[in-house]
Nucleic acid binder design. Structure first.
Length: 578
RNA sequence: GCGCCCGUAGCUCAGCUGGAUAGAGUACUUGGCUACGAACCAAGGGGUCGGGAGUUCGAAUCUCUCCGGGCGCACCA
């Protein structure tokens, strides 16, 4: 509908005025026709006259009066009125206005989706937590966010691949392996080094290891003798000693990594988050191997003159792209930095042919963005391909107090705990309820409460109420109604506000996709639920005349579809019965 | 010092590429179940959108500047 209005507007300007191409494209670029926020301004509104007035040096009011009379000729438009400083408020014919009810009833699950004129191949990399322990509540936010934008982008016609980058090659994995090894040697809670992982899950992994391989531990007295005082050096020295038995090391490492990955995958599945691909850092290969991906990436950068040797290390000239300083790719001693792996990984992602790479990162990584962007430019690609979305940490509150979390000691509130306490869908909902790059105070008590303050249930309640009405109706009828005849004939108008809201939904989904903002859907659903509850309270649907009841129910089915589709885009299952 | 984010009602927050009288929830004061689910609805008060300047027909929204708060700035991962 908006498109056909825009066509009239465009031809009005191109045909009625001697207008050069440049001015017209300026107007076309700036003006908008949109659904009004409330019905007292009509159904649609456009600001084109105020935009054009400045460019054509005309009076906006006069423009709007003549454009309004032009618009009124359209068969879908009942009336077009010039309003305010030069807006045009458009009243659609009854048929055009109620069209969205039919559309939602016909398209069902795909109502709100769009075809995507510029369909892109998009990769979203998210969560990517180091596989050194269970996911905690901080990871949950990134998981919910990445998954939701994936669903929303797909609904807008894009091709989306979701990926988890597994850092299985670095020092953190060494520490994990050492931690498990120490447990196997019988090191107890008190004795565990400060920098080791000490959570309960470490002991559980050790237990698993014993079950599979028996207890073939290192000699505790040798490993633990004369360790350096500095806690970081201490754990590294322990690792060095344990690694002297490579067979044992590798078997412990392999089992530990598998166990942790298994639990991460399990938690994500419980959270309704599925990654299409798990990409292992180790698959980039080693620098010693000249045919590995990481070697290829490094030599490619060197050949292009982007990387250079200095003080025995290999540096990337990132400051050319406005990074503060150049960064080391390969250390003096020949070991690659984490950055080197990341460069190689991003090269691989681009080589795989994605138009857009969305990286969902924890906010503490924001200093890292410029560096990666520079490396992408250094590789000869447009840095616009990369879109980094930062996710701020979520603070949990219970009884008005912040829930404490200390990661190293292992006493932390895991994602699993959260799902168990408030449920998967409520957790997803509240993670998504605020723009991702802003701090989120996650109130556990609120998420469990059962009043309007808990907007998750407020929205679900609207859906459940419609289901309940339908069930009641079905007690005496064979099937649900399939038209809104009384509403179409304008005999019943009390649903109008709701219909107006139904028609807004596809636009909300598009905006949400364009900005990568799932929370826009949440706030829309909240307002939408409010419109419904208000209608429901004022009107007793099932005691209307049978014609009216049927028409209303057909309309409410469209409303139910909007609620369901909105929730589905967030990865949340609509509730049919509270 | 440099970079990123934030500052909107007492509190928690919405506000889309600039648009018409700045919105919700909560709290406070009231009213509404002999009807489909009261986990609900309705009404009221509450604001110099951190301050200032600029761009514009029009600014909470864009630009600059100042103030206040948070975070990040490794040959760690």
């Amino acid at each position: 509908m908006i498109n056909s209005v825009n066509e009239i507007i465009d031809s009005f300007f191109t045909e009625s005025f001697e207008i050069d191409k440049e001015s017209f494209s300026k107007i076309k670029k700036k003006y908008t026709t949109s659904i009004t926020d409330s019905l007292d301004k009509g159904h649609l509104t456009t600001n084109v006259c105020m935009i054009a007035a400045g460019i054509l040096k005309k009076n906006p009011r006069e423009l709007s009066v003549s454009l309004a009379s032009e618009l009124q000729k359209s068969i879908n438009i009942e009336e077009a009125i010039s309003a305010g400083p030069g807006f045009i408020n458009i009243y659609l014919t009854r048929g055009a206005f109620v069209h969205s009810i039919k559309q939602a009833n016909n398209e069902l699950l795909s109502y709100g989706n769009s075809k995507g004129e510029n369909k892109r191949k998009i990769q979203i990399e998210f969560v990517s937590a180091n596989p050194t322990g269970p996911l905690h509540v901080g990871h949950g936010r990134g998981a919910a966010y990445g998954d939701a934008i994936g669903r929303i982008l797909e609904a807008c016609g894009h091709e989306v691949e979701k990926e988890y980058y597994v850092n299985d090659a670095g020092r953190q994995i060494d520490i994990l392996t050492s931690s498990v090894s120490l447990r196997l040697m019988g090191v107890d809670d008190e004795e565990m080094p400060e920098s080791s992982y000490r959570g309960k899950y470490i002991a559980e992994i050790a237990e698993k290891y014993i079950q599979s391989y028996g207890n073939s531990a290192h000699d505790k007295d040798i490993i633990m003798a004369n360790l350096p005082g500095d806690s970081e050096k201490e754990i590294d020295e322990i690792t060095r000693r344990i690694k002297k038995d490579p067979t044992l090391w590798n078997s412990i490492k392999e089992l530990s990594l598998n166990e942790v990955l298994h639990s991460i995958k399990h938690d994500l599945k419980e959270f309704n988050v599925i990654h299409d691909r798990w990409y292992f850092e180790s698959s980039l290969g080693r620098l010693e191997d000249p045919s590995s991906q990481i070697s290829n990436a490094m030599s490619y950068l060197e050949k292009k003159g982007q990387a250079y040797k200095e003080d025995g290390a290999l540096w990337l000239n990132t400051s050319l792209a406005k990074d503060d300083k150049n960064r080391v790719l390969v250390r003096e001693d020949g070991r690659p930095t984490y950055f080197a792996s990341d460069v190689a990984y991003h090269k691989d992602k681009i080589d795989r042919g994605f138009d857009t790479l969305i990286n969902v990162w924890g906010a503490d990584h924001h200093g890292y963005i410029k560096r990666i962007e520079s490396s992408i430019e250094g590789l000869g690609f447009d840095k616009e391909k990369l879109n980094v979305q930062l996710v701020q940490f979520a603070n949990l509150f219970r009884d008005g107090k912040k829930v404490k979390m200390s990661t190293r000691s292992g006493e932390f509130y895991t994602l699993k705990d959260l799902i168990k306490e408030i449920g998967r869908d409520a957790a997803r909902f509240y993670y998504l309820s605020k723009q991702a790059d802003q701090h989120l105070d996650f109130d556990i008590d609120l998420a469990k409460s059962d009043n309007k303050e808990n907007i998750f249930y407020y929205i679900q309640y609207a859906h459940a109420r419609i289901c309940s009405l339908q069930n009641k109706f079905m007690e005496d009828n064979a099937s649900l109604p399939n038209s809104s005849i009384e509403i179409e004939l304008n005999n019943y108008k009390k649903c109008d506000e709701l219909i107006h809201e139904i028609s807004k939904f596809p636009g909300v989904v598009q905006r949400s996709a364009a900005n990568l903002h799932p929370h826009l859907i949440i706030y829309f659903l909240k307002d939408f639920a409010q419109s419904f509850h208000s209608f429901y309270n004022d009107n007793h649907v099932l005691s209307e005349s049978s014609k009216n009841t049927e028409s209303i129910l057909y309309c409410l089915n469209a409303a139910k579809q909007v609620l369901a589709n909105g929730l589905n885009l967030l990865g949340i299952k609509p509730i049919e019965k509270m």
